[in-house]
Amino acid sequence: MALPDWATFQRLAAALVDASADRYQGWGDLVVFAACTATRIGEVSGCRVGDVDTEQWVWMLRRQTTPGPGGLKDKGTKGKRAREIPIIEEFRPLVLRRVNLARARVDSDPTLENSPVDARNEAYLDARLFVGPRGGRIATGVLRRATHWDDVVAQLGYEHLRRHDLRHTGLTWFADAGVPAAPVAADRRPHRSADHPAVPPPGHKELRDDGGKLSQHLRGDTGPQLAPTPRAVQ
């Protein structure tokens, strides 16, 4: 299921933060990022600072974090290929805040205190954009337990809402905005064959245009009614 409007979505993000231990804002940031990029929780968890271009405002989705023998591990995307996703204006402040937090984690890491500059820069680019309150990797089960997801969505009247529905909400927004074959759904495109040649990846201009359509839709009279200053991106 997809959430009906932006106000409901913001209430969900805020309620998840309020229900978590120490009211950890990272849970709300993760939920906003997942919906606005129409991606899976594991894909958001796998995002590194070096994957985000804050000049072109594009996220190169390269990996996902999934449960496996011995705990959480990183692997390739579900579609087995990287894809570019536009970062729309409405949640860029959130992204910059997460980048700054990642820099702070690296700067305060005692194991890097005496490391050369190149090693520290490499660690910064490899730092995760989204981590748990103790700096650990995130998976959908971790999000569910830490935020008391089931209780929160039931209290909001959406007891059937799953973590995967954040992606569905984003895909619905892109489709309603008139974005054909949304780049976020690239892993659903047909594989290369004689009958189905591979679809070329969109260029940065096309990605910006797609992002602009989504922004207009979010703020439009018939869209999800994005508030001028959403709480989760302050």
Rank of each mutant, 00 (worst) to 15 (best):
R98V: 04
H204L: 14
W173R: 07
Q25V: 15
T172L: 10
W27F: 01
Q25S: 13
R81A: 11
D51A: 12
L125I: 06
E113S: 15
G79S: 14
G42P: 01
D18M: 07
A7M: 10
G220K: 07
A227F: 03
G28L: 02
W149L: 08
D126L: 15
A185I: 01
R162Y: 03
A181K: 13
L16D: 04
P86D: 03
A82Y: 07
D210N: 09
R62Q: 15
T8W: 04
G70L: 07
E90N: 10
N121M: 13
P93T: 06
E55R: 08
F9Y: 09
V142F: 11
S193G: 11
Q234W: 14
T229V: 11
N100K: 14
T140A: 15
V131T: 14
D118T: 13
H160Y: 12
N121Y: 11
R11T: 11
E55L: 01
D29Q: 00
E43T: 09
N121I: 12
R208L: 13
D165N: 10
A38L: 01
V17F: 06
G211R: 00
P93N: 03
T8A: 03
C36M: 12
R81M: 09
T140H: 10
T140P: 00
Q10P: 04
D5K: 12
R219V: 12
Q216E: 15
E84A: 09
G141C: 09
H164L: 08
S115C: 12
G132L: 02
I41Y: 04
G76W: 05
L214Q: 01
A194K: 13
E122K: 15
G68Y: 10
T222V: 04
E122L: 05
G220Y: 10
V44G: 05
N121F: 02
R48G: 02
E113D: 10
G132Y: 10
V233H: 06
V52A: 06
Q64H: 08
V17E: 01
T54N: 00
R145K: 13
F33K: 06
L207Y: 11
R188W: 03
F174E: 14
R23C: 14
D126M: 14
L214F: 02
G178S: 08
F9E: 09
N100E: 15
C36F: 15
Y158R: 14
G135P: 13
V49W: 03
L226N: 09
G211Y: 03
Q10E: 12
G178C: 03
P93E: 02
G71K: 13
P110Y: 06
T8Q: 11
A35H: 00
P86W: 03
T37M: 10
T229C: 03
W6K: 02
R137E: 09
V44H: 00
R48C: 10
R134H: 02
G71Y: 06
K75S: 07
A123D: 09
T172M: 07
L214T: 07
D221W: 07
M1P: 08
W6Q: 05
